[in-house]
Amino acid sequence: MHAELNDLTNNAARYRNGKRYLWLIAFVTAFLPIASMLVYVETGFLAALCFPLIYFFVGMPLLDMLLGEDPYNPSDDVMYRLEQDPYFRVLLFCIIPIYYLTFFAAVWVVGTYSPPLWAVLVFAVGVGTFHANSLTVGHELGHKTNKVDQWGAKISNALVGYGHFCIEHNRGHHVQVATPEDAASSRFGESIYRFALREIPGGFVRGWHHEAERLKRKGHSVWSWRNDILQGYAITLAIAAGLVVWFGPGVLPFIIVHHVVGWYGLTQANYVEHYGLKRKKMENGRYEPCQPRHSWNTNHIYSNLATFHLQRHSDHHSNPLRPYQVLRNFPDLPRLPSGYPGCFVLAAIPPLWFRIMNPKVMAWANNDPSLINKG
């Protein structure tokens, strides 16, 4: 028995030593906008403000291609140890202030050095794309049930003004995922641009509806301070107002574009995660339970580490409470051709996306149109 326990401990140690500190790649990625700001401030080289955008859409796909995939799953005994290890939760709470720091620093650069409008907009798109990952952290914490994690999610989501996200995601998307009724599940042949026009307002309406219902059941007004969505929006507005007062209205275009791009970052993820996949409708009118095969999966190493395993999405939808560090891979899952950054590039060119992904959807459905989400 003693030898068996030693074996379990050694197995856990080997797993942690192999990947435990690689999660810090997420922090390296989070600090990259600071590097571009320092180059601009020290040299006046405007093109440095383009670096976050280039890194995300060129550098990360290349790193995914070079480093390949990691299909490894921890064994059951290792999973238990990893789930109980507070280190992984601490990482999530530590990265939130870094996102806020880079946001404040970016506003300071724009408000103090007054770069030309084109540079402000490009910089806002780049930093906003990075800060869409604040919603990834909010997503992870928002699936937990304790108050501390719930508030962590609220603060993280507030960075880009998406206070309704966790409510919409947990009570809406996870219930209706991979069905025509889900605003956050993209349909076969639907471009990302058409999807964004449906998903962004649809997410707000559904989130508000669910929160209004919750408050009504408790006997409270929807305009109560107890409204979780309004709490998130209040944080966002207070920060934006303070920055405008401090630096002047000239920073407002940066803040607005930054936030909208953060929303679009989530939209891009939602688009690639369930494109064309549909759950079967049973004779009783209900859809079959969500299975791993109803989400596109990818094991690309670099972008998965940078996004806290968001891209192991198949296991997440089957086990929403499972923490990111133990999400599993399965051999028969529908697979994306790249990590999310590379897929976002493909999705931005709809004919290219359709050419690559439509045959994958048809193969997944065994050429049965009834199994494809066409809306």
Rank of each mutant, 00 (worst) to 15 (best):
residue 72 Y to M: 08
residue 351 P to I: 13
residue 37 M to N: 12
residue 101 L to Y: 06
residue 149 D to P: 00
residue 363 A to K: 15
residue 89 R to F: 09
residue 160 V to L: 10
residue 316 H to V: 00
residue 372 I to N: 02
residue 113 Y to A: 08
residue 180 P to V: 00
residue 250 G to M: 05
residue 302 Y to N: 01
residue 6 N to Y: 11
residue 235 I to R: 13
residue 63 L to I: 14
residue 304 N to M: 01
residue 262 G to P: 04
residue 180 P to F: 01
residue 277 L to D: 00
residue 223 W to P: 00
residue 17 N to I: 00
residue 257 V to W: 09
residue 37 M to Q: 14
residue 116 P to M: 07
residue 92 L to N: 06
residue 266 L to K: 10
residue 87 Y to M: 11
residue 371 L to H: 08
residue 144 K to L: 07
residue 245 V to Q: 05
residue 52 P to L: 03
residue 68 G to D: 04
residue 200 I to D: 00
residue 19 K to C: 05
residue 17 N to A: 13
residue 95 I to Q: 13
residue 270 N to A: 10
residue 323 P to M: 07
residue 219 G to V: 04
residue 357 M to Q: 07
residue 123 F to C: 02
residue 264 Y to T: 05
residue 365 A to P: 00
residue 312 R to L: 15
residue 81 R to G: 06
residue 326 V to H: 06
residue 70 D to E: 13
residue 357 M to C: 01
residue 297 N to F: 13
residue 174 H to V: 06
residue 237 L to D: 06
residue 178 A to F: 02
residue 302 Y to E: 00
residue 36 S to I: 00
residue 329 N to Y: 10
residue 132 A to Q: 11
residue 310 L to C: 07
residue 35 A to F: 15
residue 136 T to H: 03
residue 77 D to C: 00
residue 274 H to S: 04
residue 373 N to F: 01
residue 166 C to E: 11
residue 140 E to N: 09
residue 281 K to N: 07
residue 303 S to N: 13
residue 288 E to S: 11
residue 319 N to R: 14
residue 311 Q to S: 15
residue 45 F to M: 15
residue 213 E to Y: 08
residue 327 L to P: 01
residue 124 A to R: 12
residue 221 S to K: 14
residue 93 F to D: 06
residue 18 G to Q: 13
residue 101 L to R: 00
residue 273 E to C: 04
residue 36 S to Q: 06
residue 122 V to K: 00
residue 132 A to Y: 12
residue 199 E to V: 08
residue 125 V to R: 08
residue 359 P to L: 08
residue 93 F to A: 07
residue 55 Y to E: 14
residue 181 E to L: 12
residue 361 V to H: 02
residue 32 L to S: 14
residue 198 R to G: 02
residue 44 G to Q: 11
residue 117 L to Y: 12
residue 319 N to S: 11
residue 62 L to K: 09
residue 118 W to Q: 09
